[in-house]
């Protein structure tokens, strides 16, 4: 097993006893509805940070925003892929227990992916872009970043944006935006991305153009 770049605080570092998951959403039905509406708002207004109304406990290196999204949308039907930074015993135990989702090692087989460290985003074309007849059979990536409002500014255009939308992200690799251009070039195929700061989301559906 690869070494964890960030040691989970609540779990033994190596193959000791199984890690107990932390509590999930306090009120699963009502909380997941509110989280979903935040995700929907983020995806329908790309580039606008949407604060999450619910911040559940999160085992490091996962953030409350990432965990809220996974607990709301992932289940036994959605294979999940985690990058090396996010693959910790505590994170695995937490997601397996609360979502019951299969954890896959092949990124192309995943419907959801969690990128624990936005400064090293894997190639976007490693994930399922859908098929010409079924572009919806594509992956959604949750990319953990440090925050919004600082860092290089990009101008976003596309559906969900009235004229243009400025977006500044800190903790996101420069190479991401070049990869994003390639992703939008194959529209309607492509992956969709949710940038997650510890407490807010920014949606990047595949329709978003960068200038």
């Amino acid at each position: 097993m690869p070494a964890c770049p960030i040691a989970p605080t609540d779990a033994p570092p190596t193959d000791a006893a199984p890690v107990a998951p932390q509590p999930g959403l306090a009120r699963p039905v009502l909380d997941s509805q509110r989280v979903f509406r935040a995700v929907l708002r983020a995806m329908s207004r790309p580039g606008v940070p949407v604060a999450l109304p619910v911040l559940p406990p999160a085992p490091l290196p996962l953030t409350p925003a990432t965990v809220a999204l996974c607990l709301t949308l992932a289940d036994f039907e959605t294979p999940l892929w985690l990058d090396r930074a996010a693959t910790t015993p505590a994170a695995l135990a937490h997601l397996r227990f609360h979502c019951g989702c299969p954890i896959v090692t092949d990124p192309a087989a995943a419907l959801f992916a969690v990128i624990g460290d936005g400064s090293t985003v894997p190639p976007l074309n490693a994930f399922a872009p859908g098929e010409p007849d079924y572009p919806d059979r594509s992956a959604t990536l949750v990319v953990q970043v440090a925050g919004f409002g600082t860092g290089p500014r990009r101008m976003l255009h596309g559906p969900g944006i009235e004229t243009s939308q400025a977006l500044a992200v800190s903790g996101l690799s420069d190479g991401f935006w070049a990869a994003w251009r390639d992703n939008t070039a194959r529209y309607p195929l492509g992956v969709d991305v949710v940038l997650a700061s510890p407490d807010a989301l920014v949606g990047l559906p595949r329709t978003v153009q960068i200038h």
Partner: peptide
């Protein structure tokens, strides 16, 4: 349904 809605929004 929520997952389908999000993909629908991503591919207008």
């Amino acid at each position: 349904i929520r997952r389908a809605i999000l993909k629908a929004v991503a591919i207008p």
